[in-house]
């Protein structure tokens, strides 16, 4: 999996909070356009890993690279040119008088020209279908939309790497689908997408590779579908398969699909082949 042209690379990274180890000897690489789920129990080290990517933390040992940049010695505001991030409680960062102004905050902080800022903001708002709310005050929007607003702010940086911490928490099904579409579009444009989540149904729909942390160690790094259809592998890691993947595994569907739509199509095909439809 270690692509030569990796956009994001962890090389034997370890990190501790004081004497408490949070990450131990973690290595992986994500190529441009790859979509990875970062999974694991609470306290497994997911948020720490994301903070290492953004430069808010620096590894005690090993190396984190974003493209040809070593994050060590780079401040988060410098890495923002390549890394877009949305953390939990992201709605607390909003402050401008309109959604448009808030989304423009990042590109303006990077010193981009006004026309370029406007282009990026329009693109980010459109990607998340927020253009109709552009003139509204962020705090007049429902909490779920404020979360999307924070995500639009990260999109507007047009980063090479997007790291998101629980981006679907509190979102209903249509909004989750909106986020899924937007992330897929970004990945298709070559952006690395790394999502820490407990929402395995969302992960199954959008993400293709699974990185599972267990007590700070990388316990799994392989295609997500293979993980989601294997209860024997999921259970020891404190994870449960989403409904579609569980059904796919229980019925031993050909190709073991995990996306709901793929499971439904496969079921229909199998049923049709047996002459029941």
């Amino acid at each position: 999996m270690a692509a030569v042209s990796a956009e994001l690379r962890f090389g034997q990274v370890s990190f501790s909070y004081g004497t408490v180890p949070a990450l131990r000897d973690v290595s992986f690489a994500l190529a441009p356009g790859e979509r990875a789920a970062l999974l694991g129990r609470n306290g497994a080290g997911k948020s720490t890993l994301l903070r290492l990517v953004t430069g808010l933390l620096h590894p005690a040992a090993g190396k984190v690279s974003v493209g040809d940049w070593d994050t060590r010695g780079r401040a988060p505001e410098s890495l923002a040119r390549r890394v877009g991030s949305v953390f939990q409680h992201a709605d607390q960062q909003l402050f401008a008088r309109s959604l448009r102004d808030d989304v423009a905050f990042g590109p303006r902080a990077l010193g981009l020209a006004a026309a370029e800022v406007a282009r990026r903001v329009d693109g980010a708002l459109a990607a998340l279908e927020l253009s109709a709310h552009a003139a509204e005050h962020p705090y007049d929007l429902p909490p779920a939309f404020r979360k999307l607003a924070a995500l639009a702010g990260a999109f507007a940086l047009e980063p090479a790497v997007l790291v998101l911490d629980e981006p679907t928490a509190g979102l209903d099904r249509p909004l989750r689908a909106r986020v899924a579409r937007a992330l897929s579009e970004r990945a298709a444009a070559g952006v690395v997408v790394l999502v820490a989540t407990h929402d395995l149904a969302f992960a199954a729909e959008v993400l293709e590779r699974g990185l599972v942390l267990d007590r700070g160690r990388l316990a799994w790094d392989a295609p997500l579908a293979a993980l989601l259809t294997s209860s024997e592998r999921l259970t020891p890691l404190g994870l449960a398969p989403p409904v579609g993947a569980a059904l796919s595994a229980a019925l031993d569907l050909p190709g073991r699909p995990v996306r709901e739509r793929d499971v439904a199509h496969t079921l229909a095909r199998v049923a049709a082949a047996r002459g029941r439809v």
Partner: peptide, 16 residues
């Protein structure tokens, strides 16, 4: 704690 979260988030948006 909240102020620290905001500082972190804004720095990740490019604010120095």
């Amino acid at each position: 704690a909240r102020a620290q979260r905001i500082v972190d988030a804004q720095r990740c948006r490019g604010l120095s």
